[in-house]
Design a protein around this nucleic acid. Sequence first.
DNA 1: ATAGTTTATTGTATTATTGCAATATTACGA
DNA 2: TCGTAATATTGCAATAATACAATAAACTAT
Lengths: 109, 109
Amino acid sequence: MGATKTDLFTKQQNDIAAMAKALAHPARIAILQYLVKKNACVCGDLVDELGLAQATTSQHLKELKIAGIIQGSIEGASVCYCINPKVWKQYRELFNAFFQDVDLKDKCC
Amino acid sequence: MGATKTDLFTKQQNDIAAMAKALAHPARIAILQYLVKKNACVCGDLVDELGLAQATTSQHLKELKIAGIIQGSIEGASVCYCINPKVWKQYRELFNAFFQDVDLKDKCC
DNA sequence: ATAGTTTATTGTATTATTGCAATATTACGA
DNA sequence: TCGTAATATTGCAATAATACAATAAACTAT
């Protein structure tokens, strides 16, 4: 077929995969890093910052917004984006839990 | 076009995105969780475990192997897979660094 | 009102991903 | 050697993601 069979997996597995997918493009990583660096609402700068077309940038912003990790607010003619701290922490905790030290054997295969 | 413009971004940004992409499917999350739970080389079980076709499972294993996060070794007629502890730690550290506490403002937008 | 600015949406082309059947490959055992 | 078992690969179809031009929508300023 071609569509992911989400019903075969647990909600947690689908959630982690969805979070990872939100991060699975360098432009979205760049956007998040920029917002974290500024640690403020950013209006407009992002298109110039990335080097991608305005439409493409807008699309990546939309995906990050759908994933919940950023939020936007209308500020006059422009729209300002910033990290959603609550969701950011959720991401951190989920990935932390996933990668938590499990005393992996050094010699395995 | 349709192809990711990797040249617009830093190596670090591309690396993080590539790692996230390796995790961006619930089947691959399930595989990793299973290998971590077993904390050993696993031979054969995975196809039954996942519920996907053998060919599909093999393909996901291949992607994880290319990403470096698992390794396989031939064990007679079957192939055994396990976590690559070194790369696992790299993933953990990179995501940790990315999500590190940055004292995000609670009230932003 | 009108022109300019900023962001979102739509349409379309291209590439990537997902999934499975069929086949190939490799190793083992009788 | 021949048949069986376990993985990998190939070929194909369907879906998703990436990118951008063109356009729309919403606000500003003159």
